[in-house]
Nucleic acid binder design. Structure first.
Lengths: 109, 109
DNA sequence: ATCTTATATAAGTTCTATTTTATGTAAAGG
DNA sequence: CCTTTACATAAAATAGAACTTATATAAGAT
């Protein structure tokens, strides 16, 4: 699975986005992250694993606790995808402008 | 369902992202969009419906054809979510810096 | 050592998304 | 009119993601 797939699949879940939002305020343990949700701890652990595999969070060890923190670089694939898309869009607009300037109506390939 | 949910759910599928990439080059009909995929036309039609409901594409009528075009404003919810997240991150880094400057080690709430 | 706290993993279930097959509709072409 | 082309919709199958219950592990507290 491509990086961008993992990124977007991870972000597509509201619980995981809420977890990221929480982590944007600072580190938190699994239990702290689980608290706001009406959901069991294993469910949260699974969400964390998805986020970790997507490179969106990292975890350390602090005795029995496993604090999580956000790793902003994990958003890079999404940034790249977005700017790619927008670059292509602009290129296609530029082509369209050229054609219109020539008075030549654009046609499909 | 919140806007950002629809946006990210739509983007989480590789077929749909490929469709958007194709549309970044310019308008295309359903058949043209379906061609590159080993997938039936109804499947593509369904993907297009998801993209449309997310506000990522729009469709017009041209006789029997239904050309699709990208609507870049559909990415606004994602842009907003991303900058929100990053704003919070920076705020929390700022707080951390303050505390460190005071020589006061940060603690959990 | 034992108990507790914090977390992970496994198995199973339920829910939702993707895809296909089959069929319907609407416009254009003969 | 009848056929074809381009697409939509419905129903059903499949696949996959999310969640729960039950259990395991590992570190700290007693």
């Amino acid at each position: 699975m491509a990086l961008i797939d993992q990124t977007l699949l991870a972000l597509a879940d509201p619980t995981r986005r809420a977890i990221l939002a929480r982590l944007a305020q600072g580190e938190a343990t699994v239990m702290e992250l689980a608290a706001p949700f009406r959901m069991t701890q294993p469910a949260i652990s699974h969400h964390l694993k998805v986020l970790e595999k997507a490179g969106l969070i990292a975890r350390s060890r602090e005795g029995t606790r496993r604090p999580c923190r956000l790793t902003p670089v994990g958003l890079a694939p999404l940034d790249a995808w977005l700017s790619d898309l927008r670059a292509n869009l602009e290129r296609s607009f530029a082509r369209l402008d050229d054609l219109l300037a020539e008075g030549d109506p654009p046609e499909e390939t």
